[in-house]
Amino acid sequence: MTRSAGNSCWIEGRTMRFSIHHATRFDFDQPSGHSIHDVRLTPKPASGQRIVSWRIDGPGKRSEWVDGHGNQVTTFSVAHQHEAVEIVVHGLYEYGGADQWLRYADTPSLPAPFWLRNAGLARHDASFDSLIDGLAERAADPAQRVAVLHELMERIAKRIAYKTGVSTVDTTAVEALARGAGVAQDDAHVFIACCRRLGVPARYVSGYLRNDDPDLHVGRTSHSWAEAWVPGLEWVGFDPANGISPRGDSLRVAVGLDYRDAAPVSGRRIGFGDAKMTVEASIRLVD
């Protein structure tokens, strides 16, 4: 069986290994006396996935904790004067399963209705009604929900062109829909907003997807998609930027109501001036 995204194919039954090098750097206009950076980049492998190796490197004092959404967080605290911070992830993961979508053994930390909250970057309003027209009755039927959400992805693809440089990490679903263009983060927020307006619990996923395949819409950073609640199946992934259900090459690291909850790296500092963030990620097939 194959999965298509453009000319890209997924070969079922073959063990595939992927390498990750992901660097996030902050350069400060003026030295900072203290900065703290929260890193949500510890993977949550699905059935059939295996983490071969994983390392997160960063400066200063390191601590580990779990946030309210069940994400593993690594915090780096630098308590001396500094002009830059760099956080780097090196990893290898592989997949050899045959599931039709990513399945997880972990127990949900929050009940499904929590993910109906109309808040944040995925907030919805009446501007989404034309996008979900005629879907509500079928979406309410668990037996039809997956098919309906695939149809929703198709509608989003027709309304929002994949285009870099037109949005930021603070762009809302309402803004992305009105603009009609965006990247994976925007597509995920619009999909989540539509799901919640239909009464379907949905959440934002931050993770990795190979970016060595020109037929996939993946930037030079980490990737974004969504998960929707389907009774009997629990959380099912949807990648509206690529029109697919994520498979074993998609590695989940964090979930949240929107990007801000699941941001790969977020921080705060004591000091003046601006901070410039640069991100470079390489996720490639190595076998």
Rank of each mutant, 00 (worst) to 15 (best):
9 C>E: 10
11 I>V: 15
12 E>S: 13
17 R>P: 02
18 F>H: 06
18 F>Y: 12
21 H>L: 10
22 H>S: 14
22 H>P: 14
25 R>L: 13
26 F>N: 09
30 Q>H: 12
30 Q>D: 14
31 P>E: 08
32 S>C: 11
35 S>H: 04
36 I>E: 08
44 K>T: 15
45 P>D: 07
49 Q>C: 08
50 R>G: 04
52 V>P: 05
52 V>H: 04
59 P>H: 03
61 K>Q: 11
67 D>C: 10
74 T>W: 11
76 F>M: 11
83 E>Q: 13
84 A>Y: 04
86 E>Q: 13
87 I>M: 09
88 V>H: 05
91 G>D: 11
92 L>T: 15
100 Q>P: 12
108 P>E: 02
114 F>M: 10
115 W>S: 02
117 R>A: 15
117 R>D: 13
122 A>F: 04
122 A>D: 07
126 A>K: 12
134 G>H: 03
135 L>R: 12
140 A>Y: 01
145 R>V: 12
147 A>G: 14
149 L>C: 13
151 E>I: 09
153 M>G: 11
154 E>K: 07
160 I>Q: 00
161 A>K: 05
161 A>L: 00
163 K>C: 00
167 S>H: 01
169 V>D: 13
172 T>G: 01
177 L>P: 14
183 V>P: 02
185 Q>K: 13
186 D>Q: 05
188 A>S: 14
190 V>K: 00
192 I>T: 01
195 C>P: 11
197 R>H: 07
199 G>P: 15
203 R>C: 06
204 Y>W: 04
206 S>R: 08
210 R>T: 14
214 P>K: 00
216 L>I: 00
224 S>M: 09
228 A>S: 09
238 F>K: 00
254 A>S: 15
256 G>R: 08
256 G>T: 13
260 R>D: 03
260 R>E: 12
268 R>P: 03
271 G>N: 08
274 D>S: 14
275 A>N: 04
276 K>M: 11
277 M>P: 05
279 V>N: 07
282 S>D: 09
287 D>I: 10
